[in-house]
């Protein structure tokens, strides 16, 4: 493989998700035109917002060669805390949000601690956190979380501004912010360097433990935000939420082309992956494939994306010699 070829394949990996999005959109338009009616479109836009917020956090963790499987648990935890503390009263909301953020940051720190200090593989560490948090929620609430969601959150989860769901706007702003941080700040540079080669980054004077910990905490905070959005959307405490959002957040980033091996990927790619995944998910519902079908298709697409990535990577390696 010569250099030009490698560059072309690199290009391929970057453009593939975009091409995929276009193809899925066309295929969806042919098989189920109703997908583009306003109510479905709104659903897609909401899904983009919710999945997108978690995927941004996941991207940060993936960039430092980690993975966060505790996202779903933090979302559930957020709903439970908000419901329990406010019991539906808007006045108590700010404090509840702070509490949820503190709890989320705690989970993020726990993940970081396990990964950095104890050297636990991120997959294991964050899954343990997931189980721990789910267990605590179940034990404390006995399956019946008390309280209810204040209507003030409805604005965040279910309102629209100029026809655009608020979660999507929130996601758009955050994507822009995270994108700029990654591409244009020294913090972003340190993140990429740490993800690509933690040893070299540390030897170059970068405080890599701090960088990794920040990524996990940021990811958990994004999950808290997603939890608020979701609670506002359904207006109901859903403590059991979402192993699916774990998967979807990772899937979106990976489909977009963010490498599981760390240090490679941009917010642009994640956004692209989120768009693709959200359309795909709603399309699956539209086709009536059921839960199993959605998971299977999601799995197939992730497999395809990872397969594409490995290909690109091995070509890059061979260039390095």
């Amino acid at each position: 493989m010569n250099r030009a070829g490698a560059l072309a394949s690199d290009f391929g990996a970057r453009v593939a998700p975009l091409a995929g999005l276009v193809i899925v959109l066309i295929a969806a338009a042919i098989t189920s035109p109703s997908l583009f009616e306003s109510s479905n479109l709104r659903l897609i836009l909401f899904q983009i917002g919710l999945i997108g917020i978690t995927a941004l956090g996941q991207t940060l963790v993936l960039l430092v060669a980690g993975i966060d499987l505790s996202v779903g648990a933090v979302i559930g935890l957020t709903a439970v805390i908000v419901a329990a503390h406010t019991d539906g009263s808007d006045g108590a909301l700010p404090v509840a949000i702070l509490l949820a953020a503190a709890a989320g940051a705690g989970v993020g720190l726990l993940n970081a601690l396990l990964v950095i200090v104890r050297g636990v593989p991120p997959f294991v560490a964050t899954f343990a956190s997931f189980v721990l948090v789910e267990g605590v929620i179940t034990a404390v609430t006995r399956g019946a979380p008390s309280g209810s969601i204040p209507s003030g959150l409805h604005t965040l989860g279910a309102d629209r501004v100029a026809g655009i769901p608020v979660p999507l706007l929130v996601f758009a702003v955050l994507a822009l912010v995270v994108g700029v941080i990654l591409a244009r700040t020294s913090a972003g540079r340190r993140l990429y360097a740490t993800g690509l080669n933690p040893r070299a980054a540390a030897m170059s004077g970068i405080r890599t433990p701090l960088v990794v910990a920040s990524a996990y905490v940021a990811c958990a905070l994004f999950a808290v935000l997603a939890g608020l959005v979701d609670a506002g959307y359904i207006g109901y405490v859903d403590a059991q939420l979402s192993r699916e959002l774990n998967l979807e957040s990772i899937a979106a980033a990976v489909i977009g082309g963010v490498a599981l091996t760390g240090g490679e990927g941009t917010v642009g790619q994640t956004v692209c992956g989120v768009l693709l995944l959200a359309v795909l998910l709603v399309w699956m519902v539209e086709l009536g494939t059921g839960v199993g079908g959605q998971l299977a298709v999601e799995g197939a697409v992730i497999l395809g994306a990872v397969w594409l990535q490995r290909q690109t990577l091995s070509q890059k390696r061979s260039v390095k010699g």
């Binding site: 040893r199 070299a200 240090g263």
Partner: peptide, 21 residues
Amino acid sequence: KVEGLALGLPVRANVTLASIA
């Protein structure tokens, strides 16, 4: 390759890796 450079970064980024501030 292991301790000195992040090979996946462009050359400019490695040149400034230790002096990014």
